[in-house]
């Protein structure tokens, strides 16, 4: 049975175009595949994302927003970096890019090593990591003798997937240090730092602990304002 699209997006029935769009954006950010990249629950997040995309598209088509939806769609289609509009297209593009990247990197390996044993092992390990078969990936990694940057990268991914974040982080850090020009490794490291920092960005925590004005802030702000005024030759607080 198909779920009620309003319920999927967490909005009231008959919500306005802007409300639907806002809810959709929020949810798309929450379940974005980048966030679940090294997570064993990635398939569940994917499913949720699909549901959300479907709900959004149904609502946009049905709720008399057809015209605007079409506009959105066109915009996204024209600007590939569009920050507006549906994420589903962006997501599809990303998947395509990913596939292209994978096939081109495979080609590179073959080019560099020929059909060397090590390269073959590495290819297998990468495949198992992508499939989520961690035990097998670890077994192959243990077999490899050539501990280069990509070995550390793959090992790092296995650790992260298992939930060993300290080792995962240091392995990926090592891969980046060994091959600083590699985009994939640096990207993974940045992603880790972002995930960590992202946790404190949730509205529940941020609103209470970062934006509440208190007396201390008030004093510091006054002092700053006073200093600025004095710089310009004026004075805000006469006594200091």
């Amino acid at each position: 049975m198909k779920k009620n699209p309003y319920k999927v997006l967490g909005i009231k029935e008959g919500a306005s175009y802007d409300e639907i769009k806002r809810a959709y954006r929020e949810l798309a950010k929450k379940y974005h595949p980048d966030k679940y990249r090294n997570n064993p629950l990635a398939d569940l997040a994917d499913e949720k994302m699909r549901e959300i995309n479907e709900a959004y598209e149904t609502l946009m088509k049905n709720a008399g927003g057809a015209y605007q939806y079409q506009q959105d769609y066109d915009q996204t289609y024209e600007n590939s970096n569009a920050s507006q509009g549906s994420y589903s297209q962006q997501y599809q593009q990303q998947q395509q890019q990913k596939q292209q990247q994978q096939s081109s990197s495979q080609y590179q390996y073959q080019y560099q090593y020929g059909y060397d044993d090590e390269a073959e092992l590495e290819r297998q390990a990468r495949m198992y990591v992508n499939n989520g078969n961690l035990a097998e990936a670890q077994r192959i990694l243990d077999k490899m003798r050539n501990r280069n940057a990509s070995w550390y990268y793959l090992q790092g991914l296995v650790f992260l997937r298992r939930g060993w974040y300290d080792r995962g982080y240091s392995s990926i850090q090592k891969a980046v240090n060994m091959d600083p020009s590699n985009f994939e490794y640096r990207n993974a490291l940045n992603n880790l730092n972002q995930q960590r920092a992202g946790y404190r960005q949730n509205p529940y925590y941020r609103n209470t602990y970062h934006q509440s004005p208190d007396m201390c802030n008030l004093c510091v702000n006054l002092w700053c304002a006073d200093t600025c005024c004095e710089c310009m030759g004026g004075d805000l607080i006469g006594c200091c």
């Binding site: 379940y31 629950l41 974040y165 946790y199």
Partner: peptide, 20 residues
């Protein structure tokens, strides 16, 4: 610093599971 990463990353994974 290292522990802060380790702990907060674990929490971020809890949050990801929770939102599913």
């Amino acid at each position: 610093k290292a522990l802060n990463f380790n702990l907060t990353y674990s929490l971020s994974e809890i949050e990801k599971a929770y939102s599913l």
